[in-house]
């Protein structure tokens, strides 16, 4: 479980996160949605410690990251799997080497053990027989899967995904979403996904957080996102005519 209290972050005196408080539960997939530029990536990177926050608290399972010593921070980091917005695969390494990387850096395993583990996770993301390909030879959807495989290879407790399905066709996007959701439940981990894709919201939105201009504007699940009368949420979620119709039908039922 991750608790965030009054998180603030600004760049060059321009506030980007203006005091965000929320909780992310274990075994659940939480979605952070919001328009481009609303601060989703900055929020996620603050949780990861890539941006140092100005104010507020970030608490991983009752431990404030500000109060952790170097060793505890390292331990926490090895417990977080991250999928970046652009996959961030190491392009000088093959797919297999990419997925093996965290094992090689942090685990004391023999090459055979590592390879077995890599093959297990590659199979989990449905990427068998691509071990020796370079990331540049893989399609966007494959790259996302490799990134997910790399993020979960050493059994993390937390999984952060920044727009794991951006740039993918709707069908593949949903496959990826569901994959992350299933993995979250299988491993019973705390997962946070950044997204601005309505399909993801409808598919896996157990818990949704809506950010707008660095403020947590709305919080709920996909069920009550239909009913909400928050203007900003409905403007964002029902921006397309299709969704407007779906909502009308849903409310009329």
């Amino acid at each position: 479980m991750i608790t965030v209290k009054n998180l603030k972050k600004s760049f060059d005196n321009k506030p980007i996160l203006k005091g965000i408080s929320c909780e992310f539960e274990k075994g659940k997939t939480s979605l952070i949605i919001g328009q481009t530029g609303s601060g989703k990536t900055v929020f996620l990177k603050s949780l990861l410690g890539l941006h140092k926050h100005d104010e507020g608290q970030i608490i991983f399972d009752n431990k404030d990251i500000e109060l952790m010593n170097e060793r505890q921070k390292m331990e926490l980091k090895s417990n977080i799997g991250t999928v970046f917005q652009g996959s961030a695969l190491f392009d000088s390494m093959t797919i297999e080497e990419n997925v093996m990387f965290p094992l090689k850096m942090f685990e004391n395993m023999s090459s055979d053990e590592m390879l077995d583990r890599v093959n297990v996770v590659l199979k989990r993301v449905e990427l068998e027989n691509s071990n020796k390909k370079m990331p540049s030879e893989a399609s966007g959807g494959m790259q996302k899967r490799v990134a997910i495989a790399r993020a979960i290879v050493n059994n993390p407790n937390y999984l952060f995904c920044d727009e794991p399905n951006s740039g993918l066709d709707p069908k593949t996007a949903i496959v990826i979403d569901n994959l992350i959701k299933e993995i979250t439940e299988e491993l019973n981990i705390t997962t946070i996904i950044n997204s601005h894709d309505m399909n993801s919201v409808m598919e896996i939105g157990e818990k949704i957080i809506f950010l707008r201009n660095g403020i947590l504007e709305w919080e709920g699940s996909k069920k009550n996102i239909f009913k909400t009368d928050n203007q900003a949420v409905t403007d964002f979620v029902y921006s397309s005519n299709l969704y407007k119709k779906v909502r009308k039908m849903y409310l009329n039922q």
Binding site: K45, L48, G49, L50, K73, M74, K77, S78, I80, T82, F84, Q85, G86, A88, L89, F90, D91, F101, P102, M105, F106
Partner: peptide, 12 residues
Amino acid sequence: TEQIDALEVMGI
């Protein structure tokens, strides 16, 4: 391409 961020979040 955020590969350096990827290294950092792994604790490298």
